[in-house]
Amino acid sequence: MTVEPLWEVFVRSRRGLSHTHVGSLHAPDATMALRNARDVYTRRQEGVSIWVVPATDITASSPDEKDEFFDPAADKVYRHPTFYDVPEGVDHL
């Protein structure tokens, strides 16, 4: 039996929100992946738009390299507003 390709499924739950990853499914082509995604992931009107992407087309960061990969942001606390002292009585800052 040939294995059908894997598709990652992204659903926009309503206008104004981004598509969010909801899961994956197997389908022989993009059109069928889209229809199957509708039947699998939006049976209760969970979405107004669906994207399907071949899983093989996704390049992911490696879990093994997580520390080195994200480390540079760890010591830059000054990127957060809470780093700064705001004198008393100052609003809207």
Binding site: G16, P81, L93
Partner: peptide, 27 residues
């Protein structure tokens, strides 16, 4: 327009430190 609005949400969140650091310099 959705994509513009969503970009602005990110931008505004990040801007809040910009204003504070400026105020701190002047203070």
């Amino acid at each position: 327009y959705g994509p513009y609005a969503r970009a602005m949400v990110r931008v505004c969140k990040e801007e809040s430190f910009h204003q504070r650091q400026g105020f701190e310099i002047l203070h």
